[in-house]
Amino acid sequence: MDAKRPTTAKAPDPWDIGFGVIVLAVSLLAIFVWFPADIKGGFFNTTPFGKIEPGDAFFPVLLAAALAVLSAIQLTISFIKGSPAPSAGSEGRLTRSNFRFLFIFFSICMAGLGIMFVLGPGIVWLMRELGLTDATYRHLTDTAPYKYIGYVVGGFLMTVTLITWTEGRVRPAGIVAVLSVLVVAIVVFDVLLTNVLLPPNAEF
């Protein structure tokens, strides 16, 4: 345990309080806004034969109520006794550097997945505009090379960018590893297993 962090924190920790407040707010929002709008069955349900039985909203409402109670208890304890100290080796919060990591990480992933999704259809669209084909991507989701374009390019860029970012340099080993994994994935999932589609082909 870090000497600067006392084992029993007396002051309520903002992350601890924040967690409780968010859960409390979410549970109340669920009970009063989300569930009424998004659950068609009621809290109770009268069967066609006059029996009253718990409906589709019964258990969700019970759980959300339990959440509200639990977070209220947690908040009360934290205000009276202070927040519990985090276990050894943990900060018990998301630091600024955690947020920066998540931002970069998700940007890389979203960019990679985005390319995976749009590249194949984009190329086919372009070819059609240029008069090279009259097919749409939907016709070609099981035709090489179109069915591989998005997966290979998007997957390669995403994975190699992540490796390069973590290592701080480009290494042939990483590129070779990613390429071989992509080849294996295509062989296993596209060639050997005939009833599944590689991303993003089930989408079109």
Binding site: L132, T133, A135, L140, T143, A144, Y146
Partner: peptide, 9 residues
Amino acid sequence: MRLFIPVIA
């Protein structure tokens, strides 16, 4: 040109 596109084939 079109003929070279395997898809069409």
